[in-house]
């Protein structure tokens, strides 16, 4: 049994998730909380936002993000890969700068026109 606070809405329900009975969730007030609790324990994911080097732009860094949530345990590994990215202005929102950064199809994309 694991305990966590639901972050789907500001109410902050205290969830209990039972790993041994198919990630059954109790303590939630709505179905979204049940889904959050299950995913958060069985397969937690996060969107990564960071920056990469940019030559010739208004600023020397360009903000980027993963175009979908990636497995939480892969975050630091993906951050290392970003150190090797070197962009040249102009770049546009949505440009892919690193394909398949997590081995499961998530791309790193630009989040600012620079």
């Amino acid at each position: 049994m694991k305990e966590l606070v639901c972050i789907v809405c500001p109410r902050g329900c205290r969830l209990k998730v039972d790993e041994e009975s198919g990630f059954a969730v109790t303590g939630n007030s709505c179905p979204r909380g049940a889904e959050y609790g299950k995913n958060e324990i069985s397969h937690p994911t996060r969107v990564i936002t960071s920056t990469v080097r940019l030559q010739g732009g208004l600023y020397p860094r360009c903000p980027v993000k993963t175009d979908r949530a990636v497995a939480k345990e892969k975050m630091l590994d993906i951050m290392k890969k970003l150190n090797a990215v070197d962009l040249t202005s102009p770049v546009h929102i949505g440009d892919i700068v690193l394909e398949n950064c997590d081995g499961e199809g998530a791309n790193i994309i630009v989040t600012k026109n620079l």
């Binding site: 969107v47 936002t49 960071s50 920056t51 903000p63 993000k65 929102i93 989040t111 600012k112 026109n113």
Partner: peptide, 25 residues
């Protein structure tokens, strides 16, 4: 917004999670 590169902006306005620069754009 230009320095708020994390996401979570625009859930009410655009019904999606944008980063700060994306919301500004």
């Amino acid at each position: 917004l230009n320095q708020c590169i994390h996401n979570g902006f625009g859930l009410h306005r655009f019904k999606e999670e944008l980063t700060g620069p994306e919301y500004a754009s």
